[in-house]
Design a protein around this nucleic acid. Structure first.
Lengths: 232, 232
DNA sequence: CGCTATGTTGATCCATATCAATAAGTGTGG
DNA sequence: CCACACTTATTGATATGGATCAACATAGCG
């Protein structure tokens, strides 16, 4: 990997505190690649040869079974994905594809496991990262099992609004087709769900969403820190 | 904790390789308690003061939102739960209650974090455990989003059969009410789902399930190692 | 021996999926 | 730059999986 990328990777929680020697060892064996949109980076079932880091663009994590497909998460810069598979040296459970033109760093899984074994600081950082991923997954699972699709959409919009700095109007970061899959519904149903939120002050125009009265929407959404908080 | 319990805790992957001094430090500050059935051990939202280990009996992990409740996992001896919350010093995302008379070891979370910081072997064991939990959660999520309730039940039964050593007839380990919640359906719907599996050689009598022809059931269930394998 | 919780079955309702048609973008090549 | 093809979004009509409500049976349990 060219040294020009070192600082941005180094800035990740995962790498920020580790020994410089070990960091450089990791970087030396790795490389950066640029991909066009809609490229499959990995596919579920394959063995995990590289830890991936999204440097620019965005990546969709999805899974398939019996000819059905569902989007599970979107990875945005700067973050890693498939850390768990790398650590366990186990097959990927999810596939990954670029959503747009994206830059991805690839670190050989074996190097990660090696450095993990000799750098306690790095190991601890991995634990923090993994526990975060785990908790995120638990939250998604609760969201899915405890809420109707309308409630999931309402809470999703409130989270996006927060991510956009609390602005009344903001842009959806994904195409609706994929959002529907992420929320566990069909595109048709998502269209209708948006209409179902109109009485709660939600207006949609293309990718532009306006929440005129967030408190009103919250009476329906009932957001909970134990499901909807990204941090913690 | 009485020393008589040390060996069984020590036998957990999580503790088996760590420094003996550190293990004894952890054990010294912890204690074992016996609980009757249906006792709430922890509740979501509380701060994580103890890492819990189920020594006997079984514990249900569940979550609530807006007056709804769903069962997320069952913890059986000998395993830990709420490890991620302990590590991050964050609020529990799930509640836990005993399903039957159960023995539970409680290790102060602060001790776990302290030993985690000084014992690299322990830290590595935690990573392995956490990544396992994470992958388990991903599998549950895929199960939920990609399958109908009938398919989830079919695959659940096949997994239970495997757990029971492949016997044609085996016992359901939980009451049907809770199984329904775990599988994301109502008890009424579970009853009907069992009947829906009769054409696939499944017979139910109370808690006793018979799968006369597993291959037949598999034509419906289409089990996948990327969803249904407990290990890996 | 009742009492209460659990499980089953039936009738009905509702949320969501599916199918179909159309409209609106988006990109490609002439 | 426009015409065409192709994908995405929306809307309507309908089907269906699953929830809800109600009645009843059954099984633990005090």
């Amino acid at each position: 990997m060219p040294e020009s990328h070192y600082p941005e990777v180094r800035s990740l929680h995962l790498f920020s505190e580790m020994e410089d020697d070990n960091f450089r060892t990791l970087m030396r064996g790795s490389y950066v690649q640029n991909f066009p949109p809609q490229i499959d980076l990995i596919h579920e079932g394959e063995s995990s040869d590289f830890l991936h880091i999204v440097l620019s663009g965005s990546v969709d994590l999805y899974a398939q079974w019996n000819n059905r497909e569902t989007s599970i998460a979107t990875v945005r810069p700067i973050s890693t994905f498939i850390l768990a598979a790398t650590i366990r040296d186990a097959p990927y459970l999810m596939s990954a594809r670029t959503l747009e033109k994206s830059g991805v760093a690839l670190i050989p899984s074996q190097d990660v496991r090696d450095i993990f074994d000799i750098d306690a600081v790095f190991a601890r950082a991995i634990v923090r990262e993994l526990s975060q991923c785990y908790r995120g997954m638990v939250k998604s699972h609760k969201d899915m099992k405890l809420r109707t699709s309308l409630e999931r959409l309402a809470n999703y919009l409130l989270r996006q609004q927060t991510r956009a700095g609390g602005e009344t109007t903001f842009e959806l970061p994904t195409e609706k087709r994929r959002l529907a899959s992420f929320l566990g519904m069909t595109p048709e149903n998502l269209s209708r769900a948006f209409k179902g939120l109109r009485p709660y002050s939600v207006a949609v125009d293309g990718n532009r969403v306006t929440i005129a009265d967030a408190d009103d929407l919250k009476t329906l959404a009932k957001p909970s820190p134990l499901i909807d908080d990204y941090s913690s």
